[in-house]
Structures are given as structure tokens and as C-alpha cells.
Write a protein that binds this DNA or RNA. Structure first.
Lengths: 202, 202, 202, 202
DNA sequence: TATGAATGAGTTTTCATTCAT
DNA sequence: AATGAATGAAAACTCATTCAT
């Protein structure tokens, strides 16, 4: 009754999926997961409620897919960006700048993560993904500060992480009004200061 | 005409109110506002659902009261602690340490605020309270860094704010596992470093 | 602990009961029985919720008492007023005028009755009272129109009843704005018209 | 892409809507608006509670729709019936008979209106509809009685209105047991009586 | 693949009634 | 006799999910 080629099916499927994910992410980020209804998502995506269940098993599953998709996509980018530097100063700069770039380019995702990171129940189905990402950041920081000859690389890493997340938090709240790039430069300056304990005084 | 006296009733009321607020705050902080049901709160407080509406007009009203109570209580404390220092170095130290102390002592409240700060709709009924608190912090920071002779007091204030909120964020996630006091010391050291741009090189 | 003489008790009791009944009647009449809460009544009466249950077994019981009190009080008055006339014309006049007087003096009660007379469930506990009152009116009408020599006394009685209730209905809705006395005069004129079928053409 | 067609959906919708409206009207009329629960309506309509909210925003909205639908439907009918007469006697007859016909055919609606007409709060969302209908009746009556040469057309109109509403009231209470058509004939006779003050003695 | 009507469990809220004092 | 805190059953309403088409 409604014939269509397989190719067309595949095309339509991915288009709808994309629309759903985009709509859901924006809504989740700005209203919260629980507060956003399937109806709202369907309306925002321009499709029907029922169709969402063709692509996602449940609302929870939709959330998980949104996050894992984005985390997956970002991981490659991030890893790549930091890998190729020998000079630890340069590496730190890129750690900061690429981190902020990632945040800027995944604004809604970060907003969503910032919220659900506190919610035990929702988090349950997600925590493995978060864990992994955090682990990677710590390792990277340790490596860089060790190379830089920091007095206490762990301390330095944690301080850097706090600064980055603090800047992110403010950016997520104020968006364009926040001078995120300028903040990034300041962070770099602070850690590369000649008299800093975060590097050996050469 | 021998019911309980007005004082007795007031006593009962404030006790029940406290039970409700305590239960609600903990649940809101750890599961989110929307995800926490009135039933859960009642059970956690050891009272009936109906009683909650004897004290609060609605779930939203309960949220608002929790926040405004805590913010009000904290404001006095905070203001006092920072007021009486002449030495700007000392003042900065207290700004940081008292801030972290406040965070430690209002763990659940901060967790709750961190979440709803992203949710437009929920926030609507609260935003006035949040605004005020933030304003105060910025003014205080500007004052201190100006006295310290910072190159750009606004930049310094924003950097400090980011660090404080970053540390808070990590603390909220890891609680006892996070060395919050040690982080505080590092923040202070960083800003009071002799060669720091956040103070005049005297 | 709270001693008081028996006399004082009795006095206070009847005062409170009165206050409750007055408050309840006004609220029931203007908002409906179900829509009016015990709390509202207590507030309007200036007493506590609990006290209502010292005088009335339930909300239903309160309703029943209000109605039976008023009906009882009115019955005596009404019966008396119509009894003493020999001239059927005079009797009809008084049937109409006393009826309207009763309506005017029991505005809220009539309003209440007009509403619940349609509600099967509420009515159940009241219907016996209503029945009785209606029966009395019909008998009275039959008597008068028979004396007047009406072609069909039953028809005339029903028509009169309809007119009276119609006038009442409009009065209940418009209160002072409705010329109820003037309407009464017109009703009388209509039924006592020389050429009326409601009386023998003498 | 083979769901039901738009027409099919519209068909389904209007059927369900009708079931709900019918069930609700009957219950509202016989138990009152406040006393009737959404559950009862759903059960009577043979559908789930939730579905009602697929069609009506709230219980109030359901009430409003019931009334406005019926009033709208009746208005056309009524207007039409009275419009085309030149002879004022004939017009009066139709005013009465069509009025009573309307009442007979909208038994439950009239019962419902009779009740809520007293309840300020419920009425608020409805009053505009009621106003309009009443205005129309008055104008029509004035017109007819003026043509008939009544001494005081306003008085006559008000008397007629009272009689009609009185008959309606009794009919609503007694239904088949009430000789409504016979009452209609009597009303007509009364106003068209040669010696009536409601017409010129021609 | 796509629709949206339909469900039902769960949520917030209301309120008559009870009860300790 | 009087109070109002407390309860619990029931109400209005929401929404993720299912399903016939």
C-alpha cells in the first residue's frame, strides 16, 4: 500500500532520527529531562509522537543515545587535537583551548550533562559514559603537568579542571555574554606564569 | 476553650515545616525537583501528603521557600564574615574560605541550585533570589582586587568566580572525596602570588 | 481547667451554632453546596473547623439542619398568614403576597433549594422536607380556586404555581433589580380578571 | 507513511467528543457540575479518564463547550422559528410553543443551566453565553407585546418570561409527569384573552 | 515508516473528618 | 466548648507508552 525503496527508507529514517535528537537535546538542555515531554519533542521535531518509538525504545533510551552520540563524536576530535604536540607548554594551551572549543560547540549537550550529573536515578543509565570522559581528562592533565615539572601535578590538574569547569558553568549560563576565549587566555597565562608552582622555574 | 496555646501551635508548625523542608531539600538535590514527588517527600518526612499543603501552597512554593530560607540565612553569615578586614590579602582569603565554607555547609542547597539554574521555567519563580546573591559576590570581588592593585580587577573577579564555582561543582559531585580545603588554599596562593597580575608587584 | 457554668455553655453553644448556620447558608446559596468547604464556613463564621463537628455530624447534616430549620420556621408563618380569610379573593391575594414575602425573607434559602432540588444525591437526604412543603401549596391553591369557581382548579393551581416559581427564579437572580412586588400585583390581577377562566364570571 | 487519513481521524475525534459530551451533560444535569467527577464521566462514556483531556483542556472547558455547543445549536433553531410571522397573535403562540419545545428538547442542558446560574464562580466562565440568550428573549417579547397593543409591554414581557421559566422549572423537576403542553396552551390563552391588559381590547 | 487516538499509572492538589490538647 | 494540626481518600490532571491503521 505504501511502497518505497529500501534506500529511501534508510534515508528517511536517519533524517527523522536526526530531527528527533536535535529537538530533544535542545529541550532537555533548557528545560530538563523530566520536564520535557515526548509530545514537546515530537512537535519541535515536526513529527508524530509514535514515530519516536520507532527509533528509540523509551525516553531514557533517547537520552542515552543523545549523550553517547555526542560523547563519541567529541572524543575522537578531542583526542586528536591534543596528541600531536611535543612542547608541553603548547600542549597545555591546546588542552585549555580545545576544551573550551568543545564546550562552545556542544553547548546544549554540556548544559544537559551539567544538570543530570546530579540526578542519581537518571545518571544510572549514563554514568559509564561520564566516567570514561573524566578519566581521560585527568590522565592528560597529569601528563602535561608532569612534563612541565609542576610541584604537584595532581594538584595542578585538579585546579585546572576546576577552572575549566567553572568557566564552562558560567558560559552555560550566560552564553554569548561570557568572554570565554578571554578566560581561556587567562587560565593559560596563570598556569604558564614563570613563577608558577605549576611548572619548574627554569 | 482549652485548645493548645498559640505558642504550642507555633512550635508544632515550625517543627513540621522543618521536617518537610529538610526532606524536600535532600530529595530535590539528589533527584531533581521535577523528579521528586510530593509522596516521596511526605514519606521521607514521616508525614502525610496532605500535610505538606497545610504549610506550602504548592510544590513550587515549597521550592521557593527552601531556597529563600537558605539564601536569607546564609546572606547574613557571609556578609558579616567578609566585612571587617582592612588588609585586602586577608579579605581575599576570607572571600575564598568563607565561600567554600558556605558551600560545604549548604551542600544540598548548592546541588539543588546548580540544577535548577539551567531550567528556565522552574527558575522563573526563583530568579530574583539568585540574581541578588550573584551581584553581591561580584561587587565584593571587584573591591578586593581593586585594593590589591590588580591589572584588571574585573578579569580577576571573573577568574576567581570561575575557580570557586569549578571547585564547588567538583565538590558537589565527589563530596568527601574532594579535597576542597586544599583547593581553597591553592586558589588563594594563585591569586596572592607575588608575580601575579592579580595584584601589584610590590 | 476550663470551668464554666452550664448556662454559659448553653449560651455559647447556640451562638456558635447560629453563626455556623448563617455563614453556611450564605455560602451554600451563592457557591453551591459541594463548592463550599468546611474551612470557608469556619472562616466566615469566625470559628474553627473542628467546632463545626461539635454541632453537626457532617457537612450533609449541616445542610439538612439549615433547610429543616428554615422550612420549619417558615411553615408556621405561612400557614398562619393564609388561614384567616373567608373571602377567596382575599385569600388568593394573600397566597400570592405571603408567598412572595416568604421568598424575599428567605432569599438565600430559596437560592440554595433551587440549586439542590436538581441534584439527586444531595436531594436524597432532604426530599421529605421538600415534598411536604409542595403538597401544602397545592392543597391551598386547589381550595382557593375551587371557592373562586375556576373552570379547572387544578390547572389554575398549576399555573399559579408556575408563575410564582418563575417570579421567584427571576428574583433570585436579579435580587433588588427585580420588581417582585409589582409582579405579584400583576399575578393577582391576572387571576382575578373578571373574564378569567380562573374564576366564575360573576 | 500509511496512518489513518485526516478524515478518518476527524471522524474518530468527533465521535469520542460526542460520547464525552453526552455523558457529561447527563451527569452534570442530574448531579451538578462539581459533584460529577471526571472518572464518572469517563466510565459513563466508556472511555478512559485521560482521553477526556485529549479533547478538553479541563473540566471547566468541558462545561463551557457543552453549553456553548448547545446554545449555538439552539439559537439558530429558535431564531428561525419565530422570525416569519406577521400576525402578532401567531407570533406569541410560537414564542411560547417554540420556547417550550426548546426546553423539552434540551432537558438536561436546561437542568444544568438552572443549577449553575446561581454559582458565581462556575458561572464566570459561562456568563457571556447566558447573557446573550436572555437578551434575545426580552427583545422578542417586547416586540410582540408592542404589536399586540399591551398596556405595558415590559410588564407583559416580564410576566411571560416568569411564566415560561416557572413552567420550565416544574417540567425540569417532574419531566413526563408534567403537562407542559397543556401549560403552554394556558399561558397563550391567558395572554390572548380578549379582556387581557396584555393586548388592546379590539 | 508514520500517525495520533487511547490507555493507565502516577502526579499534584483538595477537603471532609478526626483527634490530641 | 474550642482549636487547628494531621490524615487519607478521592479529585483533577499529566504523560510515557501502546496500537490499530
Amino acid at each position: 500500500m505504501c511502497p518505497r525503496s529500501k534506500v529511501q527508507f534508510a534515508e528517511i529514517r536517519s533524517q527523522s532520527e536526526e530531527k528527533i535528537i536535535n529537538a530533544a537535546l535542545e529541550l532537555f538542555a533548557n528545560q530538563g529531562f523530566k520536564t520535557t515531554s515526548i509530545s514537546q519533542i515530537a512537535k519541535a521535531a515536526g513529527i508524530s509522537k509514535g514515530l519516536i518509538y520507532n527509533y528509540f525504545e523509551s525516553k531514557q533510551d533517547l537520552l542515552r543515545r543523545i549523550i553517547s552520540d555526542a560523547v563519541e563524536a567529541g572524543k575522537a576530535l578531542f583526542q586528536h587535537a591534543v596528541d600531536d604536540f611535543e612542547d608541553p607548554e603548547e600542549e597545555l594551551k591546546h588542552l585549555v583551548l580545545d576544551g573550551l572549543l568543545y564546550i562552545k560547540e556542544h553547548y546544549d549537550l554540556m548544559k544537559l550533562l551539567a544538570q543530570i550529573s546530579f540526578q542519581k536515578e537518571v545518571l544510572a543509565s549514563i554514568s559509564d559514559l561520564a566516567e570514561e570522559s573524566q578519566q581521560f581528562s585527568i590522565e592528560k592533565g597529569m601528563e602535561v603537568f608532569t612534563k612541565l615539572g609542576a610541584e604537584n601535578p595532581m594538584n595542578s590538574t585538579m585546579l585546572l579542571a576546576a577552572m575549566m569547569d567553572g568557566v564552562m558553568l558560567h558560559f552555560l549560563h550566560m552564553k554569548e555574554a561570557y568572554p570565554i576565549d578571554q578566560m581561556g587566555q587567562q587560565i593559560i597565562k596563570m598556569f604558564l606564569n614563570k613563577n608558577s608552582i605549576h611548572r619548574s622555574n627554569s
